[in-house]
Nucleic acid binder design. Structure first.
Lengths: 133, 133
DNA sequence: TAGTTCATGAGAACTATTCTCATTACGGAG
DNA sequence: CTCCGTAATGAGAATAGTTCTCATGAACTA
């Protein structure tokens, strides 16, 4: 029985407005910049709740930090994230799903979940950093 | 110019003796139990060095903790890890590699790296937990 | 409107990992 | 075989992200 609070709403609204993945800390900063007063711990709690409800999507970046985003596709899916600017492409990876399931079954594993995330430099960031070098 | 020290050797030997993935903390504990006196920081440093040398393999578990293991396959590969007992199967995922590369290219991404890990319950642990319920 | 209970805020607490820096000890040169 | 320069170590402090505690505040419900 989740309760509708000002903070909960603020976080949800924020997520509706920003594309791509952001860390809890980032989101907290954004809320603060918007003038919303929400404690960091509350942001974490809310993100957890939303994730449990399946309304938010989370991935762990290469540095181990969790990043969240309003989930757009309904089904299970994966991401291609720009390491530099955070731009995200949602992938429908039926091929990978099938592969993962098959492999797991072949090895006698059950109750399988998988992590598949791609990180790279998007076209824009890629050309920019090429200049820098 | 890496230097061969008692600690380095101890960690390498330990890794040779244990299959499956273990956290740095676990490895440190094991060393301690073996009577080897190696500082935790040194374990971390050594694992980093070995990882850079490609002699050790690391994956980030669902909890975000890094787990290490002596790398068996030479090339880049992925894992199927039992959530319960840690048993690991090394996967040669040429199919996934190709898929990842293709997807990334299709979206204009470069310098792509990917994370693909499967977690589940191995045959043994699966049947055991079925009893428990 | 009153009361119950879930949610919040603030900061402490935790966990994993990295860093600092004084001290130790490889390993090549002589 | 010893001497030395320098990389490696130990111990604990420092970081970063995240979770927990607990007193206080605000949503629903009757």
């Amino acid at each position: 029985m989740p309760r509708t609070t000002r903070q909960r709403t603020a976080v949800a609204d924020l997520l509706d407005g920003v594309p791509d993945f952001h860390s809890a800390q980032d989101l907290h900063r954004m809320l603060h910049d918007r003038g919303e007063r929400v404690a960091l711990a509350t942001v974490y709690r809310t993100l957890q709740v939303l994730t449990d409800l399946g309304e938010v999507d989370s991935v762990r970046g290469p540095d181990g930090e969790l990043r969240y985003r309003r989930c757009e596709a309904e089904a299970h899916h994966h991401h291609l994230v720009c390491r530099s600017c955070g731009t995200t492409v949602e992938l429908d990876a039926a091929a990978v799903e099938a592969w993962a399931g098959g492999i797991a079954r072949a090895h006698g594993f059950t109750d399988v979940e998988h992590t598949v995330e791609l990180f790279g430099l998007c076209a824009r960031c890629g050309s920019r950093s090429a200049d820098a070098r």
